[in-house]
Design a protein around this nucleic acid. Sequence first.
DNA 1: TAAAATCTACCTACGAGTTAGTAGAATTTC
DNA 2: GAAATTCTACTAACTCGTAGGTAGATTTTA
Lengths: 210, 210
Amino acid sequence: MSATRPPTRQARGDATRRQILDVAERIFADIGYAAARLDHVAEAVGIRRPSILYYFSGKQPLYDEVEADIFASMHEFVMKRMEGVSEPMTRLLALLDAWLDFLVGRPTAARIIQRLIADSAAYGDNPVRFSETALQDIEDVVTAGVMSGQFQPVSAMVLLNTVAGGALLYVCNAHQLGPARSYDPAAPEQLAEFRTMIHRLARAAVTPDR
Amino acid sequence: MSATRPPTRQARGDATRRQILDVAERIFADIGYAAARLDHVAEAVGIRRPSILYYFSGKQPLYDEVEADIFASMHEFVMKRMEGVSEPMTRLLALLDAWLDFLVGRPTAARIIQRLIADSAAYGDNPVRFSETALQDIEDVVTAGVMSGQFQPVSAMVLLNTVAGGALLYVCNAHQLGPARSYDPAAPEQLAEFRTMIHRLARAAVTPDR
DNA sequence: TAAAATCTACCTACGAGTTAGTAGAATTTC
DNA sequence: GAAATTCTACTAACTCGTAGGTAGATTTTA
């Protein structure tokens, strides 16, 4: 770490912009786009509302950048985990593990994706502006496994909605089932148990019948 | 059917009230609570906004009744499907089938539940005001199976987030993955394929290791 | 049974409170 | 001093909820 030199003007601006994105992600995740207030974002950052509009041209563009950043980060995270892995089943498990770890580490992303799924035709004719990469990722892995003959014929959709979606719900539901059923999704034992189940289910889903 | 006698005042009022609930459920499902406008609900029903407030004391109470109705209907649907079924695995599959069929038949309910899961601490200290029955339903089935020794020790949470949640995502994602991946969740073959996978995964989840 | 009283199911009009976005001044940084 | 950053002040639009009114159906009363 460099000495506490006063940050350059450029760096300060960048930091503010980054802070706005981070706070906005949390608020959009917590209460959704329509209920989110730019005033609350500004207050949490420590600036006034119009300053947000100096960095982002409006509420929607701000949200768009939050969502784009989530899917870009997720894709990058997945790619890093899967490089060098070539065996179809290993690749599938690596993908599922990566998604699970990513969402556990960034629960705000999980909630935003959860909301995105509920928004019917949110973006008119293009509901997958930013999520396309994620869908492509699982489609590629499943298709490769099926083509190789190591997976039974199964659609990526089915895996997406069950095992992959499980990671999403695991994170979102953590504090959503009432105090008695609350759990910490990042707790090592809890996470390990869930990961084991995801693996077991993934194997069951793609293993050909004997 | 009786002759076209003009409906009594009482009947007309009841019908209007029911219509408001139906339209509100669709709009809350489509765009969420915060974005929903009472004016749009009124317009779709064919009345003016204040008339909605003649039947419901506000926007929130209207939403609450929609949500309560969904979970009451779902619970009733499940109970009917499971009466007389006692074998643990059969009961589990019956529960999962019931949820799947209910959500496929009422996709607006699926979207509202999907949003509910995303809303962190939506109701302050009580996030399960209406969903409690559903959670209890799956907990009962899983616990009974584990106690009987026919299921391996597994938490209801894990099943809820994977196989059960799968039914939710199956419905919500139908038109959400882009035109190329769109599917009709109510189409017989599509539904049968997904149901088969749910069964397979449920068995894999609870079957003890040999 | 006819008139009077009451009630239901709507309506129009309005007020109060929010909220995104804009204009332009002030301040800070280099 | 000039550019970057942040501010105050304001506007326009929107939305919930309320007040109060009305036509016509229903019930009560004499």
